[in-house]
């Protein structure tokens, strides 16, 4: 039971990150490798506003999200917009470069020390499960937020435009959907989702500058395993990978021995390799509508 709860906590973080990735890939057709750094930007700015400046947590979170949205917008204009219409692979290289620049700035401003947005957590114990109040709130928030994204995608004009562009961008453009505005909006939305993930991480655990790429890769593992432009497949795989990671280190293996917790992140990679062996286009790729 504890492993399931832990998987729910870790999966919620991965779901926030990979949801944004899935939208960006679906609409723009590009991979954004600076996503983890957008998450760290949101987390670090929230930490700075809350712990260093002393602002209330909700205001600090809002500040973190706004700064991350601005950084994401700058990243789009600098490392995506001049390139993605020429070739969709170019942003893969340029977002790596931008992620290095952000990593350097984070190191210069915050150094390598780990930071936690909330120092003292309020732990609960029931039915043999340990969970903090903050974690319950974070899980509930993620589920509500993803439901809100689902509502936007399926019940609003913006959502219909996004889905139309995902299904056939040329046809959508011929129907008058402004791709330039939509591309910027979706990219910034993915940065906001990532920033929320970073704030989540800063509240639940610690923020360190080295987390950027592991966060990005975990989100991409869910994206590739779920079928690259299948939003809900990505979310399901985010939780599935988190569960596998917890089971890998939480259950006894050969002769009752446990796998060291440090190896946990290799599980996502192994999962992807197995998925690619069985279904090279992802677990849910066949469920997508095609024209």
């Amino acid at each position: 039971m504890q492993l399931l709860v832990n998987a729910l906590i870790a999966g919620s973080l991965a779901a926030l990150l990979s949801a944004g990735l899935s939208l960006v890939y679906g609409v723009l057709g590009v991979f954004n490798l600076a996503l983890g750094q957008f998450a760290l930007t949101g987390g670090y700015v929230t930490w700075w506003l809350h712990v260093s400046i002393g602002l209330p947590l909700p205001v600090s979170i809002l500040g973190g999200v706004i700064v991350a949205a601005i950084v994401t917008w700058i990243a789009f204009e600098v490392s995506v917009a001049p390139f993605y219409r020429r070739h969709v692979f170019l942003p893969l290289v340029t977002t790596i470069a931008f992620s290095m620049i952000l990593d350097a700035l984070i190191l210069l401003l915050f150094q390598e020390r780990p930071y936690s947005i909330i120092a003292v957590k309020h732990s609960l114990h029931f039915a043999g499960v340990y969970i903090s109040v903050e974690q319950i709130f974070l899980i509930a928030f993620t589920i509500v937020f993803l439901c809100a994204v689902a509502w936007v995608l399926h019940s609003t004009s913006l959502g219909r435009k996004i889905r139309a562009t995902v299904q056939h961008s040329d046809a959508a453009r011929s129907l008058g959907i402004s791709s330039a505005l939509l591309h910027r909006s979706v990219f910034i939305a993915s940065g906001i989702l990532a920033a929320l993930g970073g704030i989540y991480l800063g509240i639940d655990q610690n923020l360190t500058p080295q987390l950027g790429f592991p966060l990005t890769i975990k989100a991409y593992a869910a994206l590739i395993a779920g079928g690259k432009d299948n939003f809900w497949g990505t979310i399901v795989c985010a939780y599935l990978i988190a569960l596998l990671e917890q089971l890998a280190i939480g259950l006894p293996w050969w002769g009752g021995d446990y796998i060291a917790a440090g190896f946990q992140s290799v599980v996502a990679l192994l999962f992807i390799i197995v998925v690619l062996l069985l279904k090279p286009r992802g677990l849910f790729s066949g469920l997508r509508r095609a024209i």
Binding site: V93, I101, D103, A104, L105, L108
Partner: peptide, 11 residues
């Protein structure tokens, strides 16, 4: 600073 410089060079 080195990271920043080579990020900018790559971009």
């Amino acid at each position: 600073m080195r990271l920043l410089l080579f990020g900018v060079i790559l971009l």
